[in-house]
Design a protein around this nucleic acid. Structure first.
Lengths: 334, 334
DNA sequence: CTGAAAGCGCTTACAG
DNA sequence: CTGAAAGCGCTTACAG
C-alpha cells in the first residue's frame, strides 16, 4: 500500500503538500497539484482512513444504535436502516451498526472508544436511559422519536399526534361514531415507546372532542398472535364498523383475515391506518392511511446530526416533526 | 478524554506497560497490573480505537457489502444483516454497512482506504465483478452464495440444490406427477444470482429423474405483481395440483390468494417451498418447507472470515454448504 | 505558495 | 519484568 510519503517523493514535493491537495483546504499551485495528482494515480494511492481519523479526530462514521431483539416488526426497521445509511453516505459518512441488546452499553462503548463521530438512536422511549448516557458525555447524537425530555439532543420523528387526529377525523367525517382502535400491546406502552404514546393520546383526545366512541383494543405485534387477535376482533358482530389500526403486524394481516371471514372494505368495515409505503408494498395494503415516511425521517435525522457535527446545530437541540399526510385508498364508507 | 499517557503517569509506569495490560499480550507483575487497572478506572479511560487501529493495522470492523436497490425482498435481507452483525460482535468485530449501488466501487473504496479488515458479500452472482476486485487485491473476504469460480475466496450458503431435490421428491413421493414450479422472474436469472440457478437446475434434474412434469412459471418478486401472477396461476383449472414455490414474494402472498379463490391446502393444492423461518413468521406461512436458515449461514460466513483474518483459513478458500432440512407442516396431500 | 516538524494515541521490538 | 524509542500514516500550525 502506497503512503502519502511515497506520493510525495514520486511527485518531488513535501508530504504536507500532498496532504494539501488531498484535503483541498489550501491553495496549491496548479502545476504542483497536477504533479501530485499524477503521482497519486500512478501509485494508485488512497488515504488511509484510520490515520486520517487519528489526525483529524473525526472518523467520518456514524453509529446507528438499534436493537431488534425487542418489540420490533422487522420490515419497518429495515427500511429505516437502509434509509439512514443512504442519507449518511450522501454526506460522506459511513454507518456502523450498534446492535447490542444493552443500548446503554453500546452507547457508552462507542463514545469511549471514539469509533464514531455521532450517534443515531432508534426506538426511543420516554426517559430512555441512552439519552442520559449521551447527554452526560456531551456527545453529538440525534433521536428518532420524541421523548418528553431530549436533554439538548436533536430529535426527529413523524407527527404521530397529528396523524392520529387526521385519521380519527377522517372516520368521524364519514359518519362513524364508534371506532375500534387496534393498537400496540401493553408491553409497547409499558416500555414507553414515544410514537405509541403520542398517537394514542392524540387519538383519544380527538375522539372525545369529536364525540366519537373509541374502543381501544391492544393487539400483539407478534405476527401469529396478531392474526388470532384480529380474528377475534372481526368476528364480533356488535363491534364498531370502523377500524383505526396502529400496529404494523395487525394491519399486515388484516387483508388475510378479512378474506377468511368474507368481509369487504369498505362495505363491511371502514379501515384507516398508519404505516410506511414499504410495509404497504410488502403486504399489498389497500387502506387509506397516513404514511410514516421512514425515508423522510431518516434524511432529516442524518441532516440534523451532520449539522451538529459541523458545529452549526441549535445550541439546545431542536425537535423536528414531519407532517402527517393522508393517502386516500377508498377504504372508508361514505 | 484520558489517553494512555495519562494512565501511565497516574499509575507511575511507562505507557508501554499500560499497553501491555490493555492488550494482555505480555505478562505484567500482578501488583503493577493492579495499579494500572486502578488508574484506568479512576480516569475512566478507554483505548482510542482509531489509534489502536493505526498501530496494529487492524480496524476490528468488517464491511457488509449489500445493495437493496435491486431485486431483493427486504424482510429476508434484513434477517441476514442482523444475523451477521450479531455473529461479528461475538468475535469482537463491528459491522460497517457498505451499500453503494455500485458494489465494485464499494469494494475498491473499502479496500483502498483500509476502513475494514475484511468483507462479507451478499447477493453474489455467477461471475460477480466484486469477486475479481477482491481477489486482485488479495483482500480477506467471504461470499454468501456459491459462484462457479470463487477465486480463492471462502463461500458459504444453503445447499439450494439439495433443497430442490428434497422438495421435488417430497411431492413425487406423495404421488404428484405434475408440479407447477413458481420461481423467480427472468431478471433474477439474468443477473445470475447463484441461489436461483442452483435451485432451478437441481429441481429440473430431480423431476426428470423421478419422471415428474415440472411446469416452470416465473413470477415477479415485486409484491403487487406477484399477487397478480399468483391469481393467474391458481385460477387455471388445468394446472397441476402441486406447487413448488421458490420466490419469497410469491410464497408470502400465497395464503391471501388461496383465501380469495376459496382454495384449501392441501385439499385443493399441495404446496412446498423454501423460505426463512423469519419470513414464515412475518407472513404466518403454513407450508411444508426447507428453511433457508440465514442465521446459520451468517454465523458460518463470519466464522470463515474471522478464521481467515487470523491467518488460519484454507489456502485456496473453502466452500461450505448448509444442509437443507425439510420441516413438515401438512401442506402436501398424501 | 511550499516544506520541516510536531502531534494525533496507540503498539511493538529492543534494551536494560 | 519494565521502560525509552521508534513507528503506524496522516494533518496542521508555523516558518520561510
Amino acid at each position: 500500500m502506497a503512503t502519502i510519503g511515497d506520493v510525495a517523493s514520486e511527485a518531488g514535493v513535501a508530504r504536507s503538500t500532498v496532504s494539501a491537495v488531498l484535503t483541498g483546504r489550501k491553495f496549491v499551485q496548479p502545476e504542483t497539484r497536477a504533479r501530485v495528482e499524477a503521482a497519486i494515480a500512478k501509485l494508485d494511492y488512497s488515504v488511509n482512513s484510520g490515520a486520517r481519523a487519528l489526525a483529524t479526530r473525526r472518523t467520518m462514521n456514524l453509529g446507528l444504535v438499534v436493537s431488534f431483539h425487542g418489540l420490533e416488526f422487522s420490515p419497518a426497521l429495515a427500511t429505516y436502516i437502509f434509509a439512514i445509511t443512504d442519507a449518511a453516505r450522501e454526506h460522506g459518512y459511513g454507518v456502523l451498526l450498534l446492535t447490542q441488546p444493552d443500548g446503554v452499553a453500546a452507547v457508552r462503548h462507542a463514545i469511549a472508544t471514539r469509533e464514531v463521530d455521532g450517534l443515531i438512536l432508534m426506538s426511543v422511549t420516554e426517559d430512555d436511559p441512552r439519552i442520559e448516557a449521551i447527554a452526560a458525555a456531551g456527545f453529538p447524537a440525534v433521536l428518532i422519536g420524541m421523548p418528553e425530555e431530549a436533554r439538548g439532543l436533536d430529535a426527529v420523528d413523524l407527527d404521530f399526534a397529528g396523524a392520529a387526529r387526521k385519521l380519527v377525523k377522517r372516520l368521524a367525517d364519514a359518519g362513524h361514531d364508534r371506532i375500534t382502535f387496534v393498537t400496540w400491546p401493553d408491553d409497547v406502552y409499558e416500555s414507553r415507546r414515544t410514537f405509541a404514546l403520542r398517537f394514542r393520546d392524540a387519538a383519544l383526545e380527538a375522539a372525545a372532542r369529536l364525540g366519537v366512541e373509541l374502543h381501544v383494543v391492544p393487539c400483539s405485534a407478534e405476527p401469529d398472535e396478531a392474526l388470532g387477535a384480529l380474528r377475534e376482533i372481526l368476528r364480533d358482530d356488535e363491534a364498531p364498523r370502523a377500524l383505526l389500526v396502529h400496529n404494523d403486524a395487525a394491519v399486515a394481516f388484516l387483508p388475510l383475515v378479512m378474506h377468511e371471514l368474507g368481509l369487504q372494505v369498505p362495505a363491511d368495515h371502514s379501515v384507516v391506518s398508519l404505516y410506511s409505503s414499504e410495509l404497504g408494498r410488502l403486504y399489498a395494503l389497500p387502506y387509506t392511511a397516513v404514511e410514516s415516511e421512514p425515508e423522510h425521517v431518516a434524511t432529516l435525522a442524518v441532516e440534523a446530526l451532520v449539522r451538529r457535527l459541523a458545529g452549526s446545530g441549535a445550541p439546545n437541540g431542536a425537535a423536528t416533526l414531519v407532517a402527517a399526510l393522508l393517502t386516500e385508498r377508498s377504504s372508508v364508507a361514505e
